[in-house]
Structure formats: structure tokens, C-alpha cells
Design a protein around this nucleic acid. Structure first.
Lengths: 318, 318
DNA sequence: ATGATGTATAGACGATTGTCTATGAGCGAG
DNA sequence: CTCGCTCATAGACAATCGTCTATACATCAT
């Protein structure tokens, strides 16, 4: 059997003929002329090298080889029909997978969107990569993920960004700290305190350093800690103060207090970053669309800042 | 997805590319040039309407849609590979089905061949139709079966025949009959006896009638019985004499005796009859081939008469 | 015989495929 | 920065496909 020139069309014709029982009937169903169908059948039988149909009392009956061939056709055609269904699910973004990379701190906010999204599209498999800014930048450079979440994005020359949430950075101290009750405090009044810092290279650290420089001050005692969690614990046990995302202050957590330092908060934003020329999986686009449409539902209005529409729009036009 | 112009060849190319990981590699394996493969891939992706491959660190990786498409290809190609295996089994006659129609009396001889054949080709499904000559002739006219077994075939204008076994017709009487011990008897000396006959239209009856006419004699008392079995019982219980196939005299059956009538036995032969222009299923051909080759093994040499080779040869050349 | 219905064959033709060569562009290892 | 891979695109061309119309042949029921 020479399979090379077998077209799926040919299989469809064959299946129709077997179902219809006559060539003419099949031709009518297929909106073809009878000779066309006859000829296709001949080609098919030539390709298979075996008669597939024989005429028994006026109707075309498949031969033994033809019956089995019919089954094979049904299976193959069915398989590609299934694939077609799969494709449309994929295209609709209801299915498939995508990966998203977050810097550590985004863990506090992204689950609010990812959770409901996964509920709505249970067939979509999301890989979430979490790491520090350095690691995420490396992934970004290697284009290992479909969507990145940064607060302070790298160069946007080949990438697009869309803000989706405010991320004000505030100075945090232990609950009982005197400045917490003040109306307003100058940073210079706090330089005697020890400051707890994330490692150089972290976004918060970068922002803090440049803000301090702007204010024309520099810190005294500092202590470097590896995670925001460690810093939180450190603050509440009186180890010092720190600049933190306001999201880190869980409403229920009474052991920390925001200090009303002049010139703060530093406004920054969580944003989705996507490579401009990278093909975005449908599922990833579906997530962005979901974020765009449902941000209001899952994020308190005080944090809202929805620019995701632009991004969706950009990729929708592809 | 537009399936119409998808060729299996195209699927093979795609599968090879995915396995090879690069277009060039695949091209080499397929003995094609690289641009050819590139172009096929493009056509394929156009047909599917979705990118199937993307280049990740130097190798081509299937996309989500591509991975699933790959599976669909494997399934479809595998399905037709299986069909190919099936086909060759069919062609080899190791598998499939055929039908054979026998006149009643052939039941005594055909199982000797069919039994061993079925043992050798357990995958072949044989339908055996048994009836009287009239019924079998009707089936023959309507071409309902692949092979017919007649002792006295109908017109052979559009059919081919091959003798495979002697079928001498002898006069049979009860064991104690005086003529059984004689050296030779003339039929005229037996006309006082009652004769047991099959119905008009049965082959044996036809042969007997024309033989009697040749001898210029006619029977006195007769009795018509519907089956050879009934006739056997009738003879042994002294109801009369009958012309029967010598095969009917089981060696162990001591209640019947062959009467050495002059001018007998009438030589006749079991033969396979096949429509000349009917496509013979491979399995049917395999049976004839089997009969041709193994007749000596399963049939005592005294009955042998093998002309089946001619038939096999005729259809082999198709 | 005469239609009616179904199938096969032949000839025609534009669209698509399968293949090539030539050439240019991208990229990772020297 | 160039070499040696890789891939993509363009142009060419014969073979094959997917269709059609016209016509002849085969059955079967008038």
C-alpha cells in the first residue's frame, strides 16, 4: 500500500461511499459529480493495491479489505476531528498551558488572579516560576516564560509592559514604634535606627537606595536579610525598620506598623511583561484577558491600576 | 483546520522533523533537501492554522498544538501501518474469510480438507453452506459463495472447475444380499428389486437415470427418500437397493455391501467450481492452494484426483 | 424495447503538491 | 569576526489531484 499520496479528503470520500452504498448517492452528498467520486475510488484502490468495494445486488459492499480500511479511515478521521476540537479549545484559551515568572514579592498579589483563573479554566496548566529578581531577569533574557511579573521591569526595548496593580513601598516598623503614631516623620529623624535590607539587586533595594540618594541621606546601621518574610519577623521582633511593599502588611497583622515618612510611599506598580515578538500561547493570552476583565473583582479598588487591556489588544490583533 | 489537502506524506514529514529536532536532519533522513522540508512544514502549519514548531535554543520544539498534532499523526500513521499488516495477512490468505457451498453428499469428503485447513489458518473464517443440488445451484447462480463443490457441475461457461476427488457411484444392497457374493451381476437381474431413490434433480438421481437409459432398462418398484442417510438405513433394513457414492460405505459399516453390477461404478468426481470473473478472496485462494498441496495427505490414494493446481494457477496470475 | 438509475471511461484544465537549486539570513564555536 | 551550522524564501517545473462535461455501458423495472 502506497500511503504517500493518500489525502484525508480521499478517506472522507471513501467513508461517504461506504455509508451511502452507491457512488451516485455519495456524489450527491458530497456535492460532487458521480464520475469524480468513481475516479477517486479508483485512485484509492490503486493506492491501496486491493479492491475495496464490490457490487453485490446493486449496492456497493466493502470487501474484507474494504471493511477494515473503512475502520482505519474512521479512526484516522476521528482522530483529527478530535484534534480539531482540541485546537479550538486551545485557541479559545480554555486549554493548553503557559508559564509565568514572578519575583518573590509578587507572590502576595498574583494568587488573587491565578486562583480564580484556574477555577474558570481548569484545563489550563499554569507553571509559575518564583525567584529573586536576578533569577527572574535571567529567565526573562532567555525567554523561558510567557509572562513575567516585575515591579521594576528591565529594559522594555523588545518587551511590552502593562501595569495592573499599585505597589506602594512604605517604611515599616514594629507596632509600638513612636513614629507610627506621629502625623508625619522625616527620614532624617530615623537614621539612628537599624535598617533591614534585601540583597543588592532586589527591586525594593534598588528603589530604596535611589530614593535615599534623592533625599540626600544615607543609612547608618543596616542588616541584610534574604527574604521579605525574614524582614517581617525581624521588624516585629524589634531588629529594625525596613522599606516594604504595603501589601506585605497583612490587615490582620498587628505587630507591624506603617511609618508616615515624608516622601513616601514610593509609588511602584506590578506589571505584566511580555516579549514583543514572542508568540503568546492562547492560554497565556486568555489569562491576560481574564486579568483585564476581572481585576476589579479580585483586587480592592485601592490597589487597582489596570493597563492590561493594551497588552491584550496588542496580541489579539496578531 | 483544513484537512482536505493533508497528505499522509506530510504527516510523515512532520513526525520525522519532530523526532529529528531540526529541519536539516529530517531532510537527510527523508532523502529530501532542506528547503523542501521547510516548505512542507509551512504548508502543514497553514493547513492547521496554528504554529506547530518553535525554535528553542537551537532545536525545534513542538508547541502545545504541535505536541498534540504529533500524537494525532502517530495515531493515524500507526493505524494505517496496522492496516498494512492486516493487508499482507489478508493477501497471504492467513486471514480473512470466504464461503464455500456444498451439495449434501460432499459432506462426507470435504471436512477432511476443511478441518486441517482451519487448523493451519485459524484466522480464516470459513462459512460452509450445505443444501441439496437445487439450492446450491440457486446460490451458484446468484454468486453467493466463493467456492462451490459439485459432483456434477452446472454449465461451466462462466465458471472454472477442478476435480479433486473420485466419487464412484456403486449399487449398494444389504450385507446379506446374494449378489454381494457374486463375481459379477447384470443390472437386468436386479430389476425385480425395489430401488431407493433421491429426489429428481439430485445429482446421483440424474446420473442413475441416464445410466439406466444407456443400459436400456427401467426400474420396477421404487421409493423416494429425502436423504442419503435415510437411504442407508433403508438399505440395511432390507427396504431395497440404491445407487450411492462409494464414500457412503463407511469401512466399519458391515450392514451394507457393494454389488458388483456390470457397467458400474459410474465414475464421477468431486470438483471445486469457481466463477471465472469473480474476485476470489485471498483466503479462498489459500484454501484451494492448501487443497492442491495437501490432498495426498488427507485423502486415501484410491480416491485421489488432483486437478486443483490449474485453478490455483489461474487465480494466482491475477 | 424503453426509460430510469447507477457505474465506468476519456478528455480537459486549473490548483496543489513535491521536489529541486540558488541565495540570503541567524547564530554559536572558535 | 569569520566559519560552519542552521533555517527561510524565491523561482522553477513536472506530477498529481480534484474537479468537470460528455459519453458509453449495465441493470432493472416497466
Amino acid at each position: 500500500m502506497n500511503i504517500r499520496h493518500l489525502t484525508f479528503r480521499l478517506l472522507q470520500v471513501y467513508v461517504t461511499v461506504v455509508k451511502a452504498g452507491t457512488v451516485s448517492q455519495a456524489a450527491r452528498r458530497l456535492h460532487l459529480t458521480q464520475p469524480t467520486v468513481s475516479q477517486q475510488l479508483r485512485r484509492l484502490q490503486d493506492a491501496v493495491g486491493e479492491p475495496l468495494l464490490e457490487s453485490r445486488h446493486g449496492r456497493l459492499q466493502p470487501t474484507e479489505a474494504g471493511r477494515e480500511f473503512y475502520r482505519a479511515c474512521q479512526d484516522a478521521l476521528g482522530r483529527f476531528d478530535d484534534y480539531d476540537d482540541y485546537l479550538s479549545a486551545l485557541r479559545g484559551g480554555e486549554r493548553g498551558r503557559f508559564s509565568i515568572a514572578l519575583v518573590n514579592t509578587a507572590q502576595y498579589v498574583l494568587p488573587r488572579l491565578l486562583g480564580p483563573f484556574s477555577q474558570t479554566f481548569p484545563q489550563v496548566e499554569v507553571s509559575v516560576h518564583i525567584g529573586n529578581r536576578q533569577q527572574m531577569l535571567a529567565r526573562f533574557e532567555r525567554q523561558e516564560d510567557d509572562i513575567y511579573v516585575f515591579s521594576h521591569p528591565p529594559s522594555l526595548e523588545h518587551a511590552l509592559a502593562a501595569r495592573f496593580m499599585r505597589n506602594p513601598l512604605v517604611l515599616v516598623g514594629p507596632a509600638g514604634h513612636p513614629a507610627a503614631k506621629a502625623e508625619r516623620v522625616a527620614i532624617s529623624d530615623l537614621l539612628g535606627e537599624r535598617f533591614l535590607l534585601r540583597e543588592v539587586g532586589s527591586a525594593t533595594r534598588m528603589m530604596f537606595d535611589s530614593w535615599l540618594q534623592e533625599q540626600g541621606v544615607s543609612l547608618g546601621a543596616t542588616m541584610q536579610l534574604a527574604s521579605n518574610e525574614a524582614i517581617r519577623v525581624g521588624i516585629s521582633s524589634g531588629l529594625g525598620l525596613a522599606l516594604l511593599s504595603e501589601h506585605v502588611l497583612a490587615p490582620s497583622d498587628r505587630s507591624l506598623a506603617k511609618l508616615p515618612v515624608e516622601g513616601l510611599p514610593i509609588e511602584s506598580y506590578w506589571q505584566f511583561i511580555v516579549w514583543r515578538d514572542r508568540r503568546l500561547p492562547h492560554a497565556a493570552l486568555a489569562f491576560l484577558r481574564f486579568a483585564d476583565e476581572h481585576l476589579e473583582t479580585w483586587v480592592e479598588s485601592q490597589w487597582l491600576r489596570n493597563e492590561v487591556g493594551r497588552l491584550v489588544h496588542y496580541f489579539d490583533l496578531d
